[in-house]
């Protein structure tokens, strides 16, 4: 009488094609049996639960925005005031206390350069690993894949020493070049190129095209959607990076926004209205980017499933 047994019987029935019709009753409504909660109550409960979950996850962000426009009197009371005084001067106050424009500029420069490098290295290596034949390909691909196994924290100590040996400590270079190749990017591009029909390249070869022309005039344009994914992944990684730039730099002139925000937190640790304003104006650009490009973010998650994270 176990439900599994019944299921399997039905499953077999479905595979043999016998039960596909009776599963739905007239009018297209789903068949319901007693004891099945997907009924009337479930139909009301589910949206209510979905709304509750959504709000629960938004509360911290809403609370950040509310505190950012609260007055100091609102903030230092308990229970906390849930309706703020709409004091927008916190933003001006926080903006004036740190070189935010420099931080923003650095982040854009660093993230932009990382994205550019990653796109180039992924496109080139992804193409070679997918479509070209050369000695040692298997070993070299394994070498690339093995790079994903090394945690960033493990790399901090040796790279700190390397950065000083190269004279790259406290520069843009140490924040850009080490992140200029991505296992995720190479893997994703390789997977994409493997799906392209062989005839495409055979035709190009018949025309006498060399690898460069095949790559840039045949393969690369087709890879645009994958390239967007890789770009977004690198951009977010670079924007959100903290421990690496924190260790590898010391001056505001080259430090990115998240490190700047941490420094601001260090000096203004109890000014919660100013802090929440600073968190808001440094984070809203990323939130806006996410809302515009949501589709790609979600596809990116599935991309990582096929390979690696980050």
């Amino acid at each position: 009488m176990s439900p599994t047994t019944g299921t399997q019987t039905n499953a077999q029935a479905i595979r043999s094609g016998r039960l596909t019709r009776p599963l739905r009753i007239a009018g297209g409504r789903t068949w319901r049996t007693p004891g099945n909660p997907h009924g009337r109550v479930g139909r009301l409960l589910q949206p209510a639960a979905a709304v509750a979950v959504g709000l629960l996850f938004l509360i911290p962000i809403l609370w950040m925005l509310i505190t950012s426009v609260a007055s100091d009197a609102d903030v230092f009371t308990f229970p906390p005031k849930l309706w703020p005084a709409w004091d927008f001067s916190n933003y001006a106050k926080a903006w004036g206390k740190s070189p935010w424009l420099t931080y923003f500029g650095n982040t854009v420069l660093i993230a932009g350069s990382v994205v550019l490098l990653v796109l180039i290295t992924s496109l080139l290596a992804g193409f070679a690993f997918a479509l070209m034949r050369f000695r040692g390909k298997g070993v070299l691909f394994l070498l690339v894949m093995s790079a994903m196994m090394v945690p960033q924290t493990v790399l901090l100590i040796p790279n700190f020493i390397i950065a000083q040996k190269l004279g790259w400590y406290d520069t843009y270079l140490i924040q850009i070049v080490p992140w200029g190749a991505s296992v995720f990017g190479i893997f994703l591009l390789r997977q994409f190129f493997l799906t392209l029909p062989k005839e495409l390249f055979e035709a190009a070869e018949m025309d006498g095209a060399g690898p460069f022309r095949m790559l840039f005039s045949v393969a690369a344009p087709l890879a645009a959607p994958s390239l967007v994914l890789v770009a977004l992944n690198s951009f977010m990684g670079s924007w959100n990076a903290f421990v690496w730039p924190y260790i590898m730099t010391k001056s505001d002139a080259v430090r990115p926004i998240e490190v700047g925000l941490q420094a601001f937190y260090g000096t203004e640790g109890t000014d919660w209205t100013g802090l929440c304003a600073a968190v808001s104006f440094t984070t809203l650009p990323i939130i806006a980017l996410f809302l515009f490009l949501q589709k790609y973010f979600v596809t990116g998650v599935y991309g990582t499933q096929g390979s690696v994270r980050g």
């Binding site: 959504g54 911290p60 925000l261 968190v279 440094t282 939130i287």
Partner: peptide, 17 residues
């Protein structure tokens, strides 16, 4: 969207919140 939004926020920023 709300659930995933939390994931894209920078750790430094939302840790402060």
């Amino acid at each position: 969207t709300a659930v995933f939004l939390a994931h894209v926020t920078p750790l430094v920023a939302t840790s402060i919140v």
